[in-house]
Computed example of a mutant assay.
Amino acid sequence: MSEYTTGELAKLASVSVRTLQYYDKKGLLRPSKIVESGRRIYTDIDLSRLKLILLLKKLGLSLKAIDEILDSKNSITVLNLLLEQQQKAIKDTLKDSREQLKTIEELRKNLPQINQVSLKTIDDIEDIMKNKKELRKVHLRMVLYGIPFNILEYGTLAWGIIKGQWIPFIVAIFILIIVATLVTRYYFHKTNYICPNCGAEFKPRMKDAFWAKHNIRARKLTCPVCGQTNYCVEVYDDGQLKNS
């Protein structure tokens, strides 16, 4: 049977000498013998025991639990019970982590794309998330309003091409213009903008907002508070303008 010094055993198991000394102190892994010079000598049995200790530790078991397993006559039963407890604890942790991840994703998704918005209480976060959800509802309603009228437009266009009767198409265009005007007014009535320079929330004139350059989240507008022209972030109009 092979014999190993503390350093050799540490190297074989990829642990530090200090770790072996600590396990020795705790009674987890004592050397098979100590020679006259004081050197601790370990054997292949000790190496196997060390590997088991490291495996159980990797599974998340405490040194106290590992000691109970190694010293028990019913070690398999004890190990099974401890692993069952550890499995449950890990599952609970995973569940909590998934819930935390979901909350983080939801919060990040609903945070405004602007640095000047400050958070002081949980109510601020709830207000921001509620605002973003309401804004998405506005966008969804606009899409839903447009679907039947798009069908009307293309349907009457196809009818005109096939039958040569263009009056239904012309009537549909007039209806679409009216509907588009109403939907646009509804959209700008339900939205405000936040200035990235001073953080002021404001509602621009409809014509200014309509003709302004824009992307999916912002429009290039002039802030009535600081006077700067920037891409201002779109937010839902909850009826209470907040100026910083």
Rank of each mutant, 00 (worst) to 15 (best):
M1A: 12
E3H: 11
T6P: 04
G7M: 07
E8M: 05
A13Y: 01
V15G: 09
V15S: 12
V17G: 05
R18N: 10
L20W: 05
L20C: 09
Q21T: 07
Y23Q: 02
Y23E: 03
K25D: 12
K26Y: 09
L29W: 01
L29Y: 06
R30F: 05
P31R: 06
P31C: 05
K33H: 04
E36P: 01
E36I: 00
S37A: 11
I41H: 00
I41W: 00
T43V: 05
D46S: 03
S48Q: 14
S48W: 02
K51A: 05
I53W: 06
L54Q: 10
L54T: 04
L55R: 12
K58W: 00
L59G: 11
G60M: 10
L63V: 00
L63M: 14
E68A: 07
E68M: 04
D71T: 09
S72N: 07
K73H: 09
N74Y: 09
N74G: 14
I76R: 13
V78L: 07
L79R: 08
L82T: 05
E84K: 13
Q85A: 04
Q87C: 07
I90Q: 06
K91S: 15
D92N: 13
L94T: 05
S97K: 14
K102I: 06
I104Y: 01
E106Q: 10
R108D: 15
K109P: 04
L111D: 03
L111G: 01
L111S: 12
L119H: 04
T121K: 10
D123W: 08
E126P: 02
I128T: 04
N131A: 12
R136G: 13
R136Q: 14
V143K: 15
Y145R: 08
Y145K: 03
G146V: 03
I147N: 10
P148Q: 02
N150I: 07
E153L: 15
E153K: 11
T156R: 01
L157W: 04
A158Q: 01
K163T: 08
G164L: 14
W166L: 10
I167S: 09
I167F: 13
I170S: 15
I173Q: 08
I173A: 12
I175V: 15
I175Y: 08
L176H: 08
I177S: 10
A180L: 11
T181V: 08
L182D: 06
R185M: 10
Y186A: 01
Y187I: 01
K190D: 04
T191V: 11
T191I: 09
I194A: 11
P196A: 11
G199W: 13
E201T: 07
K203V: 13
K203N: 07
R205Q: 13
R205L: 12
R205G: 15
M206P: 01
K207D: 08
A209N: 11
A209E: 05
W211N: 13
K213E: 12
N215D: 15
R217V: 14
R217H: 15
R217M: 12
A218C: 14
A218N: 15
R219W: 12
R219T: 03
K220H: 15
P224R: 00
C226A: 08
G227M: 05
G227F: 06
Q228W: 00
Q228N: 11
Y231Q: 04
Y231G: 06
C232F: 08
V233I: 14
Y236K: 02
D237L: 02
D238N: 14
G239E: 00
G239D: 06
K242P: 03
